[in-house]
Nucleic acid binder design. Sequence first.
DNA 1: CCCCATGATTTAAG
DNA 2: CTTAAATCATGGGG
Length: 420
Amino acid sequence: MDEQRMMGMLSQAGYGMQGGPVDGVGDPGVQEGRKQDIGDILQQIMTITDQSLDEAQARASYEAQMNMQKHTLNSHRMKPALFSVLCEIKEKTVLSIRNTNEDEPPDPQLMRLDNMLIAEGVAGPEKGGGAGAAASASAAASGGDNAIEHSDYRAKLAQIRQIYHTELEKYEQACNEFTTHVVNLLREQSRTRPIAPKEIERMVSIIRKKFSAIEMQLKQSTCEAVMILRSRFLDARRKRRNFSKQASEILNEYFYAHLSNPYPSEEAKEELARKCGITVSQVSNWFGNKRIRYKKNIGKAQEEANLYAAKTAAAASQGGVHEGYMPQGQLGSYMNLNGDNYQADSVGANVQSQVSGMHRGYGHHTSSSPPDMGSRDGGSRTTSPGGEDSNSFPNIHDLNSNSGDGSYHDEEPSNKRPKV
DNA sequence: CCCCATGATTTAAG
DNA sequence: CTTAAATCATGGGG
């Protein structure tokens, strides 16, 4: 099989030395001649050796002859010296070759694949650990019961992982086997051909390189499989589920209670997320959607908002049926607003405008203060936390949307899915 | 089926 | 990073 190839390479190395820079010292002319001689001799010997080996492979009947030649060669008194010299020469040429193409910077592509596989928990720490740990961690982080959705995913991932490890193992085993085989072969041949240990090392490294190409292919296809799996299972869009009725209520209450400035601070978002059993990202999404959709709707379908206002009021008066965090302060103003009516659109401006004087640039609270609480207006109106900022958000009044029911939520969007 | 409410994502601006 | 706006894709009701 590959002996043929190896012999070819060895022969090549042998021939290559002919013109090569064998040594830097000495008179060029003499040196040249000597090199030529040595080259000729070597070539002859190599040819004979190759021939004999080839014939041996081809025909067993030459066994005897080959043995004889081997014996002759082995018993020649000059043999050790000659081999030594040949080895030295070969080593030099081989080294020069090696230097040109041996430098093997860890392939960036391979590193990328490795990183991704580790990130996906495929290649990471041993079997049970990686995927399982990652999955349970993310499940715990998101608060929980989303396991249903992901169990399938995890199962598939584990499958991929299994296959990957099996293949990798197979690959390693094959690589080692083959390497061992080649090394043995070379050692065997080193009795009849000038093969230095370094030569063997080099062969081994070449073999490893070849095999690592296969390894990379394996990693690549594994990565692809993971990618497909991810897009299939983890694309949240495909798995959209409405929030629970209760979560929607909580969110809506907060929204309508802070209509004048419906931008929950980071802390508020966390609290809402906790109460609703969803992630902070989801809260942000919800408010983003809510704001824009509310705005688009002003003027109609707002009756339902009253519903929330009423609920809120009721809750407040009863001591808070619904979580505590409806700022009681605002209820009053709310009722006012509602009662006031809603031409709000027009009125709205005036309604909120005046007020507490201090402005803080609306919106972007760098999480400074929870918009809610404090802002209670003293007398009668609006409470918007930031004086005029209330204007910034289109007039408020009601509207509502009673969201559906449904239930699940997804786990924290584990943001980036790698791209291939 | 269609249609629309809705959560998530993308895009663009700051 | 956050947000508004547009858009996507699903769930679920008629």
